[in-house]
């Protein structure tokens, strides 16, 4: 049996400006699907993009190369990942005056 978990990393957190999700330890996992859902928005956050970052230590981050759109309210965006090392997070920069309530979910599998 392969270990798996679906982790809700941001649960209705309001994202605005320059924002990144909390670091998540993924060394045990070989694949991930990142889901981003909007539970509510102000302005036009869908004009921005979010992107995946990886890290050797959970503190210093570098772009992994994958991106995902900021979804409209009640819509959902996703991206599939592999070969990501030990730590994962999602980062975005939203237009001034725009924000959304993020439901960020990582589906990880050994």
């Amino acid at each position: 049996m392969r270990e798996s978990i679906t982790a809700v990393v941001a649960r209705g957190d309001t994202w605005s400006g320059v924002v990144a999700s909390e670091p998540y330890d993924v060394a045990w996992a070989s694949e991930a699907v990142v889901f981003l859902r909007s539970l509510g928005a102000e302005g036009h956050p869908e004009q921005a993009r979010a992107w995946i970052q990886i890290s050797p230590d959970g503190m210093r981050w570098i772009d992994e190369g994958s991106m995902l759109p900021i979804p409209r309210v009640d819509e959902i965006a996703s991206v599939r990942l592999s070969n990501f090392g030990t730590y994962l997070r999602v980062m975005t920069v939203l237009p001034e005056g725009s924000s959304f309530k993020a439901l960020l979910t990582l589906s990880l599998k050994e």
Partner: peptide, 10 residues
């Protein structure tokens, strides 16, 4: 939020 499985990497 969810706990993690960690190998304690520094």
């Amino acid at each position: 939020s969810q706990p993690m499985l960690s190998n304690g990497t520094h």
